[in-house]
Amino acid sequence: MSRHVTVGLDGSLQSDAAAEWAAREAVLREVPLRLVHADEWPVWTADPEAEAGVQRPGVQRLWADKLLAEAAERLRQRHPSLEISTRRLSGRPSTALATEAADADLLVLGSRGLSCVMGFVLGSVGMETITAAEGPVVLVRAPAFPGADQDTPAGSSRDVVVGVDIHQPCDPLLGFAFDEAARRGGRLRALHGWSLPPVVHDALALEAAERDMAPDIARSLGDTLAPWQRKYPSVAVVELTPVGAPSQLLAQSAADADLVVVGRRSRRSRLGAHIGPVTHAVIHHCAAPVAIVAHH
Rank of each mutant, 00 (worst) to 15 (best):
S2R: 11
S2L: 00
R3A: 14
V5Y: 03
S12H: 03
L13W: 02
Q14F: 04
D16Q: 11
W21L: 03
W21Y: 15
A23H: 10
A23E: 09
V31D: 11
P32K: 01
P42D: 14
W44F: 12
D47V: 03
G53C: 08
R56E: 15
L62S: 13
D65I: 00
A69D: 15
A72N: 00
R74Q: 15
S81T: 14
I84R: 04
S90N: 10
P93M: 04
S94M: 02
T95C: 00
L97R: 12
A98T: 09
E100W: 02
D103G: 03
D103L: 02
D105M: 11
L107Q: 12
R112K: 01
S115T: 14
F120L: 11
G123W: 13
T129W: 00
T129M: 05
T131Y: 03
T131F: 03
T131P: 00
E134Y: 07
V137G: 04
V138R: 06
L139W: 00
G147L: 11
D149G: 10
Q150S: 05
D151L: 03
D151A: 12
A154P: 10
A154N: 07
R158N: 07
D159P: 04
V160P: 10
V160I: 01
V161H: 12
D165S: 08
H167E: 04
Q168S: 07
C170W: 00
D171Q: 10
F176C: 08
F176R: 09
A177T: 13
D179E: 11
A181V: 10
H192M: 06
L196H: 08
H201A: 09
D202H: 11
A205P: 06
A205D: 15
P215R: 14
D216T: 05
I217P: 10
I217A: 03
A218K: 05
G222W: 05
D223Y: 00
L225G: 06
L225S: 09
L225V: 06
Y232F: 15
S234A: 07
V237K: 04
V237S: 05
L240S: 14
A245V: 07
S247M: 02
Q248G: 04
Q248F: 03
L249F: 06
Q252Y: 00
V260N: 08
V261L: 05
V262M: 13
R267C: 04
S269I: 06
S269F: 06
L271S: 14
G272K: 09
A273Y: 01
A281I: 02
V282C: 07
I283F: 01
H285P: 14
P289R: 03
P289K: 08
V290Y: 03
A294W: 02
A294Q: 11
H295A: 05
